[in-house]
Simulated scan of single mutants.
Amino acid sequence: MTTPRWTIRLRLTMLFGALFLAAGAALLFVTYLLVVHALPGLDVDPPSPPAIEVQGGLPAPEVPAPDTDLQRRLAEQRAEDLRQFRVASGIGLVLMAFVSAGLAWLMAGRVLRPLRAMAVTANDISSRSLHQRLAMKGPRDEIKDLADTFDGLLARLEHAFEAQRRFVANASHELRSPLTFERSLLEVALSDPDPAALRAACERLLVNNEHQETIIEALLTLARSQRGLERREPVDLAAVAETVVRTAEPRDLRVLTDLTPTVTAGDAPLIERLIKNLVDNAIRHNVDNGEVHIWAGQSNSRPSIRVTNTGPIIPPNQVDDLLQPFRRLDTTRIQNQYGVGLGLSIVAAITTAHNATLTTTPNPTGGLTVLVEFARPSPL
């Protein structure tokens, strides 16, 4: 036995009907009080008999006494009228309750019709048809705002699914290409019995394997940072940046630091990876005899880290592409000599996990400035 479904339409109908019934009953009650007490109950005394002067010693005329039987009949008639009024009012109230319930049912259905259309459309949308939209038309009311909000959610989901598909395709290619290279290298080495050639092939395999490990480690870090934080602990951005700079390989670049002890709360390994990726990216994408500036301190009263480097000129409309996995300035796939193509993507994911703000600004003379502002630490 299925229980009845208490739909919104049914609940609105019952609510409207109950409100009408209560309002109608209150109105009839007030009307009845007016009829009983106000109209016939003014208690106006009958007029006094006129004063009759007695002249010439004649006896005064007799004034007839009030007809008590007439008054009784009038009281009975009034009581009967009030009873009929109560009966008629009750019958009318019951009939109007049914009429109001029917009208409430129709009006509730009309009001909820856009919601039903939204439910049908949303039910038809799947991961393969996220391009569809509700596109609700009509006045700017709550239902229209709800439909627009849902359309915005679909747009964000479509963007996320597209980014996921591109990421999976790019990651698959990045992992498949080294495997294909290793297979070809092994086949060539096995066909040549020369020990020197075999040793050279093994050395190239080791280099290629190291690159694969770098890609897998970057992918795991990206997945971990996108999952969110499991713990938070005090982290000194200046100390972490100093450690990263000390272990970096600046080539022929000048690395300048301005580090002020600045403590934030977060995942220490992820924050270290964030700063390391910023520094490595600034060193890798630079020019000969260029510079890298690393600053740590307070920006807008928030613990912050900023890395600025010289380098090629970056068009402002392509800055967002730098945050996409396996992308470079010309929006094509990044090649191995430039890295694995996940550096700034990991930075963006770690920034989001820490509820921080990431700002990337191309420098007028070339290069990029990346500023990460962490949230203010909560007082203990």
Rank of each mutant, 00 (worst) to 15 (best):
A60R: 14
E62I: 04
E62N: 01
V63G: 00
P66L: 07
T68A: 15
L70D: 03
L70C: 01
L70W: 02
R72N: 04
L74M: 06
A75H: 00
A75R: 01
A75N: 03
E76K: 03
Q77W: 06
A79D: 05
A79F: 02
E80N: 07
Q84I: 11
F85V: 02
F85I: 12
F85N: 03
V87C: 00
S89R: 01
G92Y: 03
V94A: 15
A97I: 01
A97Q: 02
V99F: 14
A101E: 03
A101K: 03
G102I: 08
L103E: 04
L103P: 00
W105E: 08
W105Y: 14
L106T: 09
A108R: 05
G109D: 07
R110S: 09
R110G: 05
R110V: 12
L112F: 14
R113T: 08
P114D: 09
L115R: 04
L115D: 07
A117V: 08
M118L: 12
M118R: 07
M118A: 12
A119R: 15
T121L: 13
T121S: 10
T121H: 12
A122R: 08
N123R: 15
D124K: 11
I125P: 02
I125R: 06
S127R: 13
S129Q: 08
S129V: 06
S129N: 08
L130K: 05
H131W: 07
H131F: 04
Q132S: 06
Q132L: 10
Q132M: 06
Q132R: 15
L134Q: 03
M136G: 05
M136R: 08
K137Y: 01
K137L: 10
P139S: 03
P139W: 02
R140L: 13
R140P: 07
D141Q: 00
E142T: 06
K144N: 12
D145R: 00
D145G: 03
L146H: 01
L146D: 09
L146K: 00
D148S: 00
D148E: 09
T149F: 00
F150K: 00
D151I: 00
D151S: 02
L154S: 03
A155C: 05
A155N: 11
R156A: 02
R156K: 12
L157Q: 10
L157S: 05
L157M: 15
H159G: 05
F161N: 04
F161D: 04
F161P: 00
A163Y: 01
A163K: 12
Q164E: 10
F167S: 11
V168F: 11
V168L: 15
V168Y: 09
N170P: 01
S172V: 04
E174Q: 10
E174Y: 06
L175F: 08
R176K: 14
S177C: 05
S177M: 13
P178Q: 06
L179Q: 09
F181Q: 13
E182Q: 14
E182V: 13
R183E: 13
R183Y: 14
S184L: 13
L190E: 09
S191G: 12
A196N: 11
A197M: 12
L198K: 15
L198Y: 07
R199C: 03
C202K: 11
E203Y: 10
R204A: 14
